[in-house]
């Protein structure tokens, strides 16, 4: 009975509190240090077998990549021109230094060192911490798209909360649709493991969102960076009372067997 009361007390304490205490940090860092000896070599060996299996598809992939590279070179010229135009206009409109830097993101490469063995809390541990300038609520992405955000930071390691483990109260990541950033808005809330879809709620009835659209973060509120790919819309439906709509989103990034991830450092957070 006493242990039960203690348990409830600890849980209540952990819900209300955000930071980490010294012993917690110490334990996390030492364990993270040991874990990284195991995770990376295991990843290499698993990767080797996968590579042998993939040999056949490499040729096709190469062909595709060549085409993508050609398209990239073409777009790069256009991008440079637009970038210059944009700089000139910002200067003409007398943007402050802060406003200019707001979309200047840095990507830090992090190694995953461990995955949580708890189905409802699949957090990842990465080997960057407060020493490298990681702060809470920075976005974490892979080359395919966003996978989560930093939830806890200690000196040498930090914890990544994946977007699949979010519940409605905690998340509040605002999202929009690629190409319709002005008209579209919704909030990511909750993941349905049964259908493997992320829910996007609070979409207005006039929203032009439709099946097949690419959903990205909107960056409104300047907590999360803008333009991080989340996934594609699979279906939309009216919500229970019919005032707003919800969309089911298929995630772009795969969350299993990650080895390298990128932490997105926004200008505001790096101050």
């Amino acid at each position: 009975m006493i242990s039960f009361i203690l348990f409830i007390a600890v849980i209540g304490y952990s819900i209300s509190r955000a930071g980490l205490t010294m012993p917690e940090k110490f334990l996390r860092d030492t364990t993270g240090y040991v874990q990284q000896w195991f995770y990376k070599p295991a990843g290499y060996i698993a990767g080797l077998f996968q590579d042998i299996g993939n040999l056949r598809s490499v040729y096709e992939e190469n062909e595709q990549l060549r085409m993508t590279a050609a398209a990239y070179a073409r777009d790069k010229v256009e991008y440079n021109a637009i970038q210059q135009e944009n700089d000139r206009l910002s200067a003409a409109l007398k943007f402050t230094e802060e406003q200019k830097k707001i979309y200047d993101y840095k990507y830090l490469i992090a190694q995953v060192v461990a995955v949580s063995p708890d189905a409802y809390n699949r957090t990842l541990t990465i080997n960057l911490g407060a020493r490298e300038g990681i702060r809470e609520r920075m976005a974490v992405v892979t080359v395919d798209g966003m996978i989560g955000f930093i939830s806890k930071v200690s000196e040498l390691t930090s914890t990544v909360m994946p977007i699949t483990s979010l519940n409605a109260e905690e998340s509040g990541i605002s999202a929009t649709v690629l190409g319709k950033q002005k008209q579209s808005f919704g909030i990511l809330s909750g993941y349905n493991s049964e259908t493997e879809h992320l829910l996007m709620t609070k979409i207005s009835a006039e929203d032009p969102i439709k099946k097949g659209d690419t959903v990205i973060t909107s960056g409104l509120g300047n907590v999360f960076p803008r333009g991080m790919i989340i996934g594609t819309v699979e279906s939309t439906q009216d919500s229970d009372i019919g005032l707003t709509r919800t969309a089911n989103i298929k995630l772009a990034a795969k969350l299993d067997q990650l080895s390298e991830v990128f932490v997105v450092k926004t200008a505001e957070a790096s101050k």
Partner: peptide, 21 residues
Amino acid sequence: MLQDIVFRGHLLGLHAYTMGL
């Protein structure tokens, strides 16, 4: 407790309690 702290997510002490009990 080690698991709870290293993979600190929603709750602290859940695994310590259930495993111990």
